[in-house]
Design a protein around this nucleic acid. Structure first.
Lengths: 357, 357
DNA sequence: CTGAAAGCGCTTACAG
DNA sequence: CTGAAAGCGCTTACAG
């Protein structure tokens, strides 16, 4: 029977009573540092034994209150529905556990009010640190954390209010654009047909990727891409589909190359694709700034980039360890390189290295 | 400035001191039931004001300790890397929040030790309920919860130790098998070429789906599928690919129909697909017991089933509300029907109803 | 080697 | 209408 006769959960008092030891002795034994206090081995054994038969389980609220350390590590994230965010969440969990913290990650569906509420709640739970992932304007959340004296780190999308770690969007987009231009030229097409689809005007990641897009053109001495090559049509698949359909209309055919800014924009592209014969798609060079194992295997000539979630999380924790809150220097922004998923072998490796579903 | 001069986080004592009210008054005001205690409006306003300027944030550990109610709702889940588990996690979060609880969901990577550890930790954090999703043998976890007096519900995979809510795997598999047999017959193929790929021998969901597979044959008066039609090769994509490659070898061609037991098995099938010319795949009827927006758009004749995550979670909470722990009757197992994703429109709707990534 | 006692921050009867 | 006080379950100096 795991509960005491009164029906409550058992506490150290119950163990103390059962063993005749004092609560301090019980506490010390339970925390494993009985050796340090020279408690007799016999007493320790008796306590441990009693704890087991009583089904004792420490109350972390009580311990947290006493020690002013909750043992909780928080993360807010938009959702889990793509490999990038799912990977961020899982890697965060692993790393937090490795550090003896209990990870608590909550999805916000990119809703400002939910972001704010959830942050308040996490702070009220006294998380010891907070990772803010994929939040467009993290500054108010950072401010909340500052006020509570809790360190926060922005991940994926940076902010002024705390150190940030983000993918090197600009270099990644440039490299990806380069690959696409090469393919287009090899097919006798003009690079200025390359389209960039998705993202939000003014958003950091979007604008950095657009900058990288321009970089690739400039580096080759090509004229900059025409103004209407870039469609900041948001992240909804439907919007990307519409933008592409319009282009198809005016051009009278598919553009010779297109780069989608996110996996959801790519989904829009695929929707439009499924309305046309598949074979036209073989003749257009497609790139995606993100990876998905099924998307990678569509009958497209698609080049995917993969963000390095392990490294993003590792750098974020590193920032936590080194950052001194007292410094008045502006917060650092750490850039993590992206990697290409060029072959199906890359995809298989990526998918296999994640434990089987 | 959010902290008191001493640098600590502010408490109700700080507010009491600042306003000249007592801590009880402060507490009541902060909890919004000052009207009930007939505290003067002026006092209330002063307290609220002071709380704001002090940047007060309630300490939920302390409140939880006092009230023996943590306000936490826990869920363990294998991972977030497919739409089913991601959907379960997000729906759980929403529903928990709607009930005023703070959701805390942790991924276990299907590791027994992690499952056990995480459950212990969640219990030590005094979660008020625990959803155990996708755990092969949840009984030990249920036992832990019982010992702690915390209600638990098994989701996706059932167990004897607690009420369970699962998809109606058998009916779903039967309906799916039916569709595939129809297609095969329409093409002049024999139904006995239909293959079932993936899952684990003895696992509930796997065996139920296999039963449904058999049901479909029996209902038509067809001879049962040959013994080697069923490959319980696990959930790893690589294993499904191997199993399929072997079949291809012995048959000298692709089987006329195949049903994958999970999205990861489907990934294995797609890997093998990408080694062969795409057009052979148009002539084989493929089914998948799960849905993914990209997988749905591969140039396959693929029929997908989608599990109803909203309903699964809703039923699980309903079970929590009605279940009386004292009853000695065996725990109920609630079945939730699955739905077909037959057309690309279905896919679009499914994808759009999830907020944009 | 072990015990009595204070205190973490909160809430809620219970008196006034 | 408001305040003093106990107590939730734990840990840790501090005495013995």
């Amino acid at each position: 029977m795991a509960r005491t006769t009164t029906g409550r959960k058992s506490t150290i008092y119950d163990i103390a009573k059962a063993t005749g030891a004092s609560t301090s002795t019980v506490s010390m034994v339970l925390n494993g540092n009985w050796a340090r206090y020279r408690i007799s081995e016999e007493t320790a054994a008796r306590v441990l034994d009693s704890a087991k038969t009583l089904g004792y389980n420490v109350n972390l609220s009580a311990r947290g209150l006493r020690l002013s350390r909750s043992g909780l590590a928080g993360m807010v994230i938009p959702h889990y529905r793509n490999r990038f965010f799912a990977g961020l969440a899982e890697t965060f969990e692993d790393e937090a556990r490795r550090r003896g913290l209990c990870p608590i990650v909550v999805g916000t569906q990119r809703d400002r009010d939910v972001e704010l509420n959830v942050t308040q709640t996490l702070l009220a739970q006294r998380v010891e640190l907070l990772f803010i992932a994929g939040v467009r304007n993290p500054a108010p959340l950072n401010a909340l954390c500052d006020a509570a004296g809790i360190p926060s780190i922005n991940v994926d999308l940076p902010g002024e209010g705390a150190p940030s770690v983000v993918s090197d969007n600009r270099a990644g987009a440039r490299a990806l654009t380069d690959v696409l231009i090469d393919k287009m030229i090899a097919r006798g097409n003009s690079a200025n047909e390359l389209m960039l689809l998705g993202g939000i005007a003014g958003e950091y990641a979007t604008e950095m990727r657009i900058a990288g897009f321009h970089d690739a053109f400039a580096a080759r001495g090509l004229p900059p891409p025409p103004h209407d090559a870039i469609e900041r049509c948001g992240y909804a698949p439907a919007a990307a589909r519409e933008a592409l359909a319009r282009r198809y209309e005016t051009l009278g055919r598919l553009p010779a190359g297109m780069l989608t800014n996110s996996i959801t924009s790519f989904e829009g592209l695929v929707r439009f694709a499924s309305e046309l014969p598949w074979d036209i798609w073989q003749r257009t060079a497609v790139g995606c700034f993100d990876w998905d194992p099924f998307a990678a295997r569509l009958p497209f000539d698609v080049t995917m980039l993969r963000q390095d979630v392990q490294r993003l999380i590792a750098e974020a924790f590193a920032l936590l360890d080194t950052n001194d809150a007292e410094s008045s220097a502006p917060h650092p922004v750490v850039m993590v390189p992206t990697r290409f998923m060029r072959t199906l072998d890359d995809d298989m490796r990526a998918s296999d290295e994640e434990p089987a579903g």
